[in-house]
Design a binder for these strands. Sequence first.
DNA 1: CCATTTATATGAGTGCGCTCATTTAATCAT
DNA 2: ATGATTAAATGAGCGCACTCATATAAATGG
Lengths: 203, 203
Amino acid sequence: MRVTAETKTATRERIIQVAAKLFIKDGWESTTTRSIAAAAGIAAGTLFNYFDSKEAVVAELISEALAEAGHEVEKRTGESLEEELYTFIWAELSALRKYRKFLAQAAESILSPLRRHSDESAGESIRTTHLEAVERILLKHRIERPAAVTMQLYWTLYLGVFAHWATDHSPKQEDTMALLDQTLNLFITALPRTLPSKRSRKS
Amino acid sequence: MRVTAETKTATRERIIQVAAKLFIKDGWESTTTRSIAAAAGIAAGTLFNYFDSKEAVVAELISEALAEAGHEVEKRTGESLEEELYTFIWAELSALRKYRKFLAQAAESILSPLRRHSDESAGESIRTTHLEAVERILLKHRIERPAAVTMQLYWTLYLGVFAHWATDHSPKQEDTMALLDQTLNLFITALPRTLPSKRSRKS
DNA sequence: CCATTTATATGAGTGCGCTCATTTAATCAT
DNA sequence: ATGATTAAATGAGCGCACTCATATAAATGG
């Protein structure tokens, strides 16, 4: 069976769309790959011709939402470093708002800091794309290319904010806004101080 | 069928011991609950009379290791706040060293910041126990009872260190030592500054 | 002692994500 | 047109964590 490239991309998009609907309606765990396939009008196994895993589906969903949000924000100018980072992150979270409820469950395994960088996990590109954008913002504000450990620290802090956002019960997630504010403040304070030299402690 | 309380605790301990062996030998994913049950000399279903889930088994394993390490360290005195936190955390990590390889896989779902605090997950007691110990250390150094958001920030940072440790390839995890040093430095810097009042930003 | 109650052990069963041998259909060579 | 080739679709099947009706044996009461 052969199928035109158009049909393929159409099917792929259809999977993502129905998956989004189902995830929003039924949650992450209750939505099975079988039900996604059925709703997309394909066989159960066919889903895995398009995505490596259930997680890869939601990772694609996230990536698409973030890509849109990212483009708009990066054009802005004339803000302080903290303002710019804040705007960028908040724009991303806003873009993900409709997925918020099930992301708390889904993202756990996708964005976990415990995933090895080396393996080709579904969320790896989300992480690198985000970090690249942050690096670009830092460079724009004359912060010299941050050390790997700095970005690692950033990602850790970001995950904390993300986790709080995903489970934030305050009406418009204003608790998260406050946390993000504090977190960025802390990160920026840390910026000049991180890793000037490899000075190990206690022997 | 009834069994004495002794038999029950013996079985429970046996499960933990054989599970530890298998996890170390075969890793987290390759060790099945069936294989643990078989090695412990019980039926597959019986395992779940003793533990809610596969994750609960490893959570118990971690808790036991941490309990031993925690007791020894908390007696110490005369160190700076940073020193004391460093010693405490490093003692914990040392106690977990034998489990390090499979913890990178296992802990992902257990310690994830994305788990809701409210639900009764396997790793919840690990988190609260650790945070209580840290709070005790802070109090000992005249830091007034830290705000919830401060401890949240601490846990986020701690998870970053833990994640790095779990996948640290340097011979004696000295990379982690350096990261821990920097992380604690950052946390302590942040201490007086976190949440003086509920000042929300941007409306 | 036997009957009843009760706490535990049991393993077949369930639904899941995912795989893979096979089928199907579009394309290409003649 | 027709057969050969190829890429994608298929769904039965696998191994997993976990459940639950049932079996079993210890404790208890007469």
